[in-house]
Design a protein around this nucleic acid. Structure first.
Lengths: 192, 192
DNA sequence: TACAATACGGAGAACCTCTCCGCTTGGCCA
DNA sequence: TGGCCAAGCGGAGAGGTTCTCCGTATTGTA
């Protein structure tokens, strides 16, 4: 019993991933799975064997992106002041989410279907990294949770996903607005 | 040539609207149009004659809700201080958007397909009403556009649409955060 | 009451997701 | 090197969807 896949299975896995990446980039996250299988030169059955759900396929495609995003968090933490790192990372996050048609969107929210490739957790960790640093620093309110912040950013990404030309600038404006909220001193009212 | 519809057409229109309202409430905005036609006791062809696109049907169903939301804006303007009115109206807006499965979402963003029932415009006007009053009052930053604010609120609604139990509280937290951003004194940095 | 014009409705084309199962193929073992 | 068998393939097909077309029924009027 080979602990490793058969080589043809491996090959098909790769091809599917490549085809999916292409299709998702073109059509968005609701691209036809049938079509993806066709592009990869395999039958639908094969696609479903490798990736039982659309979310699983999305997760696999996104993994690399997520990895890069997490790496970016560490990088920014090392090279920038806390508040700048936070702002910059959120900007990057939103840019990613937008260009992938709000892709991760469903994924990041629903999350936790696939236990192994839990992108959601990883992203949340990255967010926590930049956020808690800013909080220690005093540039982010202490009562803010990483997943709340992430969700707000995701909301911005989702509503600016449509290909309208001014959406990028708008995303920036909305993020700036949100960040002012993040910087605001106290939970509800006055400063402590 | 009767300037008015035939009575059976009128009747079917009503039935379709009622069925759609029901179906959208149950299943969300992606409810099957086929099923809606079936519920209304008409053929699919009839549905498509009355509402050429899903968006048109959604718009028709939402119109009443939108109306109510706009009325609420006026009401709040008349009875509350500017900043309270703004906060309260946004709360209401988000609540509506959430319970309708982010429904208006697509509608409000895409908008402007159907020229007559332009919900988008009406909502935006309502938002502008409460916002500009708060701006005159000094409780909202002057450089904020109504449609940006609306979009941020919509983002909050969209990401908290899933039926998870804590999403309502989370929506509140996110709105509070956004509002702190709205209250923040200046565009980028310091106070004038 | 007869006759347009108007509106209906369902069959059907073209797509989608997802499953099942007979057949092929890769890799091990003699 | 050849043979065997599990792992893996792929496509037919069931059941869903959106949307169209056109023969038929209904309405309101002359």
């Amino acid at each position: 019993m080979p602990p490793t896949q058969r080589t043809d299975a491996r090959r098909n896995h790769e091809r599917l991933l490549a085809a999916a990446q292409e299709a998702f980039a073109e059509t968005g996250a609701e691209a036809s799975l049938n079509d993806i299988a066709r592009r990869a030169g395999v039958g639908p059955g094969t696609l479903y064997r490798h990736f039982p759900t659309r979310a699983a396929l999305l997760a696999a495609v996104l993994e690399e992106r997520v990895e890069r995003l997490c790496a970016r968090a560490d990088e920014l933490t090392a090279t920038r002041p806390a508040d700048q790192a936070l702002a910059e990372w959120l900007r990057t996050f939103i840019a990613h989410a937008r260009t992938h048609h709000g892709l991760g969107g469903a994924l990041l929210l629903e999350a936790s279907d696939a236990p192994d490739t839990d992108c959601h957790r990883r992203i949340e960790d990255a967010a926590a990294t930049v956020l808690t640093r800013a909080q220690r620093n005093g540039t982010a309110r202490p009562d803010l949770a990483a997943d709340d912040l992430l969700q707000l950013a995701l909301g911005i990404a989702l509503t600016t996903t449509a290909p309208e030309p001014d959406h990028e600038a708008r995303a920036d404006r909305l993020l700036a607005l949100a960040l002012d909220g993040v910087h605001a001193p106290a939970p509800g009212r006055a400063a402590p």
